[in-house]
């Protein structure tokens, strides 16, 4: 059970959060301008890192905010946290 540092609520147990997955390149502004292969890559390809990556969490059973964690997937160590880009308060 991770202990996730919520910028609003402090350290809270993982059970209060939903993991929204790895931070990916942004959704293309105009998906029609993207080739088929690039589009399906965007949809399904994940890096599945063993080590440090950035991921989003939603504090759904808490304050409702979204945060971005930098976490080591092998040790669960959380190296940094930041609210989602442009995240709403």
């Amino acid at each position: 059970m991770l202990l996730i540092p919520c910028p609003w609520c402090g350290p809270r147990p993982e059970a209060e959060f939903v993991c929204a997955g790895e931070v990916l390149p942004p959704r293309p502004a105009d998906p029609n301008a993207v080739g088929d292969a690039a589009w399906t890559d965007y949809l399904v390809m994940r890096r599945n890192v063993r080590g440090v990556h950035d991921e989003r969490w939603w504090h759904v059973r808490g304050c409702g905010s979204w945060l971005t964690l930098r976490r080591d997937t092998a040790t669960h160590r959380i190296l940094a946290n930041d609210s989602a880009p442009g995240g709403r308060e």
């Binding site: 939903v18 929204a20 942004p26 959704r27 989003r56 939603w58 759904v60 979204w66 989602a84 880009p85 442009g86 995240g87 709403r88």
Partner: peptide, 12 residues
């Protein structure tokens, strides 16, 4: 979650 994802990830 779908709505929240749109607003926080795709269209902040």
């Amino acid at each position: 979650q779908h709505l929240e994802t749109i607003l926080n990830v795709h269209r902040p």
